[in-house]
Simulated assay, not measured.
Amino acid sequence: MDKKATRKSPRGDSRRRAILDSALRLFSERGFNSASIADIAADVGMTQAGMLHHFPSKAALLLAVLQEREERNQKAKSESLERGFDYLSTFLRTLHTNERTPILVQLFAILSAESIVQDHPAHDWFVERYREVAASMTSELAAVFDQSKLPAGMTLEAFARWIIAVADGVRLQWLLDPTAVSRETSMIQFFTILRPYMRDPDMHISLDEPSQEKRR
């Protein structure tokens, strides 16, 4: 029985991969509500019943697509930090990597906007995702900013939410007109405004490889 399952696994993984890739593309082009199970099944050459064997519902497929994107970003983030990049440079590198696949950026922008409606299947996922990102970034920024330098009433969580908001806002402008704005440049300029509050105001924030000294 194990051998039989092993023989079937590669084919099943291949079909699952094809479904995810198709859903990613169609959701990003049409939005979740306009891309149907029938559209995705036809795109990958499967019956709807066959596709639902891998993903029991359209909502389950949507969440799988979103989760895969997050897992890719988390993996890239971990690898960047391990290579010696500071947190803000790692943030820039994640944006830069995502922009190499505009369809993923577009997918996230469309679905995050659609999910504002509370009965959208990704509503809770996005609410929790932003909570987790804000909490994680707030924690990471403690090593970047000197809280004693912050203006009265200002918190690291506020800085975190500003960074997220600027990145999201510039993302929308970049998607509408890629020639109008650079997310990398915009974020570096924003970080420059925040330098007076950093522990090391001269910290080098960029996509460049960290020096050998910093890697040690």
Results as ranks from 00 to 15, higher is better:
residue 50 G to P: 06
residue 35 A to H: 02
residue 125 W to D: 08
residue 94 T to Y: 02
residue 80 S to I: 11
residue 121 P to A: 12
residue 37 I to D: 00
residue 124 D to G: 07
residue 135 A to R: 14
residue 108 F to E: 04
residue 149 K to E: 08
residue 39 D to R: 02
residue 113 A to Y: 00
residue 109 A to D: 10
residue 190 F to M: 03
residue 167 A to V: 15
residue 35 A to T: 13
residue 161 R to A: 03
residue 181 V to P: 01
residue 167 A to E: 11
residue 138 T to A: 02
residue 171 R to G: 10
residue 142 A to L: 04
residue 154 M to D: 12
residue 158 A to P: 09
residue 88 L to V: 05
residue 73 N to H: 12
residue 159 F to E: 00
residue 55 F to P: 00
residue 21 D to Y: 09
residue 142 A to C: 07
residue 65 V to P: 15
residue 64 A to T: 15
residue 134 A to Q: 09
residue 187 M to W: 08
residue 33 N to C: 03
residue 202 D to Q: 09
residue 88 L to W: 03
residue 127 V to C: 14
residue 60 A to T: 15
residue 174 W to I: 09
residue 3 K to D: 02
residue 34 S to F: 05
residue 64 A to M: 00
residue 105 V to M: 09
residue 135 A to E: 12
residue 183 R to H: 05
residue 34 S to Q: 12
residue 138 T to K: 08
residue 165 A to G: 10
residue 57 S to N: 04
residue 1 M to K: 11
residue 155 T to H: 11
residue 75 K to R: 14
residue 15 R to E: 10
residue 8 K to G: 04
residue 209 E to N: 06
residue 6 T to Y: 02
residue 47 T to S: 15
residue 172 L to D: 04
residue 155 T to C: 06
residue 65 V to K: 07
residue 197 Y to D: 02
residue 30 R to Q: 14
residue 97 T to Q: 11
residue 132 E to S: 07
residue 180 A to S: 10
residue 81 L to H: 03
residue 88 L to K: 02
residue 166 V to I: 15
residue 159 F to P: 03
residue 172 L to G: 00
residue 128 E to S: 01
residue 26 L to P: 06
residue 127 V to S: 14
residue 140 E to K: 14
residue 14 S to H: 12
residue 45 G to A: 09
residue 139 S to R: 15
residue 91 F to E: 06
residue 36 S to R: 06
residue 89 S to K: 04
residue 205 I to P: 13
residue 182 S to R: 02
residue 179 T to L: 05
residue 66 L to H: 04
residue 102 P to N: 10
residue 140 E to G: 05
residue 15 R to P: 05
residue 33 N to R: 13
residue 68 E to D: 15
residue 142 A to H: 11
residue 128 E to D: 00
residue 90 T to G: 02
residue 129 R to A: 10
residue 53 H to Q: 01
residue 26 L to I: 08
residue 118 Q to V: 05
residue 12 G to A: 01
residue 67 Q to T: 13
residue 175 L to A: 14
residue 181 V to M: 05
residue 50 G to Y: 12
residue 197 Y to Q: 03
residue 109 A to N: 07
residue 122 A to M: 14
residue 168 D to Q: 11
residue 66 L to G: 12
residue 169 G to P: 01
residue 13 D to S: 09
residue 20 L to Q: 13
residue 88 L to Y: 00
residue 90 T to H: 10
residue 182 S to H: 10
residue 86 D to I: 14
residue 195 R to G: 01
residue 31 G to D: 03
residue 112 S to M: 05
residue 40 I to M: 07
residue 141 L to E: 03
residue 139 S to Q: 15
residue 36 S to P: 07
residue 81 L to S: 00
residue 71 E to K: 04
residue 94 T to N: 09
residue 94 T to M: 06
residue 99 E to N: 04
residue 173 Q to Y: 06
residue 104 L to V: 07
residue 4 K to L: 15
residue 83 R to C: 04
residue 162 W to Y: 04
residue 109 A to V: 05
residue 22 S to C: 06
